[in-house]
């Protein structure tokens, strides 16, 4: 971790503690509440988070940061996340097997797979999962508004 990243993490922890603590303080107290109340423990958690964030900032400022461990490819990670979000948005419209087949094809293509086997892989995988989840386990996956389903 770089010094800036550790400082950012500490600042993020402080900000999160502040927002969470403010929401905890605003929780209405019911007549059924005990002495601690529904916001008591969350306020303590906010205190813990704020303390850890402050110590991290202090430590980084005084003695520096640790060494970086891994540097994943953020663009590719964001691309994969985008494909999964598209799947969640598309499944009510396209239905489970088609949306899953498209997800499989898109992820494999995005990962570097090319060639004529790609559509067969996607269709086979979608068919396999449909048989396993819908036909065998009876899970009511969306059938797709485009095809008159729900």
């Amino acid at each position: 971790m770089s010094r800036a990243a550790d400082l950012a993490l500490g600042a993020g922890a402080l900000a999160l503690a502040g927002a969470y603590g403010a929401m905890a303080a605003a929780i209405p107290v019911s007549l059924l509440s005990d002495a601690v109340g529904p916001g008591g423990v969350p306020l303590m958690i906010a205190g813990l988070m704020a303390g850890a964030g402050a110590v991290l900032i202090l430590r980084t400022a005084l003695v520096g940061a640790g060494e970086a461990k891994e540097r994943p490819d953020h663009l590719r990670a964001a691309g994969l996340l985008g494909l999964m979000v598209l799947y969640v948005l598309a499944i009510p419209l396209l239905g489970y097997p088609l949306a899953l087949g498209l997800l499989a094809a898109a992820v494999a293509w995005f990962g570097g797979a090319r060639g004529p086997s790609l559509p067969f892989f996607a269709a086979g995988l979608a068919g396999f999962f449909w048989v396993m989840f819908v036909a065998l386990l009876g899970i009511p996956f969306p059938t797709g508004a485009l095809f008159g389903g729900h």
Binding site: A108, F110, G111, A113, L125, I139
Partner: peptide, 18 residues
């Protein structure tokens, strides 16, 4: 690897919905 990743992701999204 791309095919394996695609299969694992399909398993995740299907299993969680189930």
């Amino acid at each position: 690897k791309p095919y394996l990743l695609a299969a694992i992701l399909c398993l995740i999204v299907s299993g969680v919905f189930a």
